[in-house]
Write a protein that binds this DNA or RNA. Structure first.
Length: 284
DNA sequence: GCTTGCGCCTGAATGC
DNA sequence: TGCATTCAGGCGCAAG
């Protein structure tokens, strides 16, 4: 499922193939994919048709394309969203929800099996769209403030992983990279945030940046000139995960069997030896 | 104001 | 074989 590295791959693809092009037409095959555009399908198409894409922006897992009207096309991939850039004569794909015809003879196709993602037109294209205002900066953002993050984290009264998945505290980290970064930093997912010390926090941030940078390096090389794809199935997921999905397999650091526990109604994978359970786990 | 839990979705995997 | 159930999880929203 798309997390920060995958979304950044899509942003780069859009920057390369869509910025500067004009939207000549919009086809909506499933209105559920624009359910957050409250003004409806006709308005969605009207607001976009004839507009030129000025740039491709991202914060956390949100993408937006500022337009020359000062609106922006806001995109979230959700669990299964893909943005494909293809020739108009490419065959139709399963779960195609929205198609854009561009002036440069390419199409943008939004494909989303589970429809957790979606698109909308936001009225604030020049700056941060209103829908993204509450999203914290992510670890790829040069203005990410580790001091501020540490302060906010220690003031939370919850479990560590729950805080990490809260996009208003730090963005871009989903279930998979949370488990991977916690494993690398040797931290337990239910560690009380109030007990986190600065070295723990810095170790986590370094681990998260490292694991996501590695994923970006691999994902960033996996698309060709006319194809931008995010499907959570990149080579990175198959080769490089140390914790996620590896329950009952030996930890690659100490050999102890990786455990799977349900936390926040999600699976959490962790090594009982490298990431010992705290005395007062929270939110578990 | 902060924290927590639910519902949205589809299809692959699993159980009977 | 075929039907029913479970599971995956990012996000907004409402309740506590």
């Amino acid at each position: 499922m798309p997390e920060l590295p995958e979304v950044e791959v899509v942003r780069r693809g859009l920057e390369r193939h869509v910025v500067g092009a004009t939207i000549d037409g919009v086809r909506i095959d499933d209105v559920r994919s624009i359910r957050r555009h409250l003004a409806g399908t006709a308005d969605f198409a009207d607001q976009l048709t004839g507009q030129t894409v000025m740039s491709a922006q991202r914060r956390g897992k949100y993408l937006w394309l500022p337009l020359d009207s000062d609106d922006a096309l806001l995109i979230h991939l959700g669990m299964s969203g893909q943005v494909l850039i293809q020739s108009p004569d490419a065959p139709a794909l399963r779960h195609e929800r929205i198609t854009f015809d561009l002036s440069n003879a390419l199409q943008v196709r939004f494909v989303d099996q589970r429809i957790f993602g979606g698109m909308s037109v936001s009225a604030s294209g020049a700056e941060l769209p209103a829908e993204v205002a509450h999203i914290a900066r992510d670890l790829f953002d040069p203005l990410f403030d580790a001091d501020e993050f540490a302060h906010k984290l220690k003031n939370r009264k919850t479990g560590l992983k729950r805080a990490l998945l809260d996009q208003s505290l730090i963005s871009g980290i989903g279930n998979i990279y949370a488990d991977e970064a916690l494993w690398r930093a040797k931290l337990h997912f239910a560690r009380a945030t109030q007990t986190m010390r600065r070295p723990d926090i810095d170790r986590f941030l370094a681990a998260a940046q490292e694991v996501m940078s590695e994923a970006l390096c691999q994902g960033g090389t996996s698309f060709d000139a006319l194809y931008v794809n995010v499907n959570g199935q990149s080579g990175y997921f198959e080769r490089s995960l140390e914790a996620y999905g590896r329950h009952d397999e030996p930890c690659r650091r100490c050999g102890t069997l990786i455990r799977r526990d349900v936390f926040m109604n999600r699976s959490s994978f962790w090594c009982p030896r490298c990431q010992p359970r705290p005395r007062n786990p929270q939110g578990w």
